[in-house]
Write a protein that binds this DNA or RNA. Structure first.
Length: 151
DNA sequence: GCCAACGTTGGC
DNA sequence: GCCAACGTTGGC
């Protein structure tokens, strides 16, 4: 069982959207490293920290979990989608994504500005300068510290 | 809005 | 395969 941090711009898709929808395919990932995490390493039951990026107060706002293994990301074939990929073909889809389910919102967000001051979190990839990877692994200790979960 | 850091593209 | 140019990300 692994744990992850998923970035999303709240203007695009926020934790409240997931709370409303209950579950959603994590479409639109167009980076091979993040895609490979979804295809090879993310499994049903894995936990996910839901992180808001590119916004006034970036940080972890909620908890989700993987509820379905990676499947074809249909947005790659939708010409109207901002995630359309003209070089991908239905015979050989380039992009796949997992489905995630809403678990809960944090009582108060764990902000990036606060994460930076906690020594136990200093190894988190999200804190590395220049980091742009939208899916990153999270250790069990980091998970407990951020979510307050006992295990 | 600024700008550093990064990933991708494409000419060679 | 190299690498400059370009577009994007994302904190500030």
């Amino acid at each position: 069982m692994h744990r992850w941090l998923l970035k999303s711009e709240p203007g695009d898709y926020a934790i409240d959207d997931l709370a409303r929808d209950k579950r959603d395919w994590w479409t639109g990932i167009r980076n091979y490293q993040a895609r490979n995490f979804m295809i090879h390493d993310m499994h049903v039951g894995d936990g996910a920290l839901f992180y808001h990026s590119n916004c006034a107060a970036p940080g972890v706002y909620g908890v989700a979990k993987v509820c379905a293994q990676a499947a074809t990301d249909d947005t790659q074939f939708a010409p109207d989608s901002k995630y359309y990929d003209s070089k991908s073909s239905p015979d050989n889809p380039r992009w796949r994504c997992v489905q995630i389910a809403f678990v809960r919102k944090l009582k108060k967000p764990f902000l990036l500005a606060d994460m930076r001051h906690i020594p136990e979190l200093e190894k988190m990839l999200i804190l590395r300068r220049g980091n742009r990877l939208s899916i990153t692994p999270v250790s069990d200790d980091e998970w407990r510290l951020i979510t307050g979960d006992k295990k």
